[in-house]
Design a protein around this nucleic acid. Sequence first.
DNA 1: AACAAACGAGAGCACTGCTCTTGATTTGTG
DNA 2: CACAAATCAAGAGCAGTGCTCTCGTTTGTT
Lengths: 233, 233
Amino acid sequence: MSDSPAPRTARAIARAELTRAILDSASAQLAETGPAALSVRAVARDLGMASSAVYRYFPSRDALLTALLIEAYDDLGTAVEVADAAVERADLARRWAAICHAIRDWARAQPHRYALLYGSPVPGYAAPDDTVPAAIRVTTALLTLFSDAQAAGVRPVTTVPLTDDEQAALAPLRAFTDPTLDATWSIRGLLAWAALFGNLSLELFGHMYRGILDYDAHFAQLVDQLAADLGLA
Amino acid sequence: MSDSPAPRTARAIARAELTRAILDSASAQLAETGPAALSVRAVARDLGMASSAVYRYFPSRDALLTALLIEAYDDLGTAVEVADAAVERADLARRWAAICHAIRDWARAQPHRYALLYGSPVPGYAAPDDTVPAAIRVTTALLTLFSDAQAAGVRPVTTVPLTDDEQAALAPLRAFTDPTLDATWSIRGLLAWAALFGNLSLELFGHMYRGILDYDAHFAQLVDQLAADLGLA
DNA sequence: AACAAACGAGAGCACTGCTCTTGATTTGTG
DNA sequence: CACAAATCAAGAGCAGTGCTCTCGTTTGTT
């Protein structure tokens, strides 16, 4: 965020401050009306400035949206890391539950920001390179948990064998953590990852409408079941 | 779709034809540029008519988008039902695989339409009542498969016990199929549902970028694993 | 044949993202 | 300190959008 080494001149200070104000106003507008309705002119009106002035700080609407995307990823990443850190590190089942519920709590509190992150990508496909560092934080938390569990000798329930093709397909993922994830942990971990975000998206995007009555109860059940399948319970 | 009992007058015929032409043009534009960029004026230009004339057929852009949504749900539903019907009804494992791969093939062939269905909802929350009949077709195919499997004596791998709250939360879903789904099938079925669409969305929306190399191999593996957890393999 | 409903085309409004020009302010340097 | 260069805010303007309204024309019904 503030990687610039303390702005000295008055102009640099004003610029940093206005950049923040634009992001705050845009973030508020995003939370209310969603990414599609985010308007540069509305942000300018909110801040009492000309719309053309905003373009001195963000070259385009997509660039502003990308900045909001990165901020949202960082916000969620922080929430997950805080929840994870609040639990005894050896209590793997509780860490799993803490991470899952932190993600869901964050998503339900600001569904539009969740939609920006995990819904349909809005601006073409937003430049991945800039967003990746922020985006992988929550993934990293999950992978670290899986790695810790594997190192502690936890074994998920058995899986179907991996073919060579499938082994190769998961190579970069398995090599991400310090003790490399074995086949079983890779499969169960990815399945849990997909089920977790799949359930979240299906819930928040309205696909459980009239099919499931109590979303809280169902999610808690899903997290418990995934924990059991991961060998954590 | 064509529930009106055969248009008799020339005007009614022309209206039906133009409605179809608008939907086709809009669908093509949707497939190319995505839901956000769908423009009523562009559709009108494509058909060589005034933009105001389009509003005689669809009262708003959102209404046009909703019609496209329903068509896409029906299209996907048909693809799933065809794939399911092409497999020996007693071969439950093959039916499961056929349904899963039909969904993915459809989604990869037209990612923008998939995003319209399972990505962030675009127009507020599109009137659910109109879209529900088309939307539940793919869900029905899955639930029917689960119900058939349960009736055939297939047992998924064991699950954590359901509390009364969780039982109640799933009531409408379990009552949907003819032989009511038992607790184990409900849990494993919903988990498979979430994992299936979760994997699909994460893949299509770019969240596996540089983490998984071969999406085909990984998806095939996921489907196999879910089949095993469902007791089908 | 007469009347009403439906229709297509066009103008127009309010809004958007974005660019360009103009004039004021701040900056680093001779 | 002075001055040139960089930076900035503001406004006008362009092309595009969704949508409404009006105005003749065409079509269906009686």
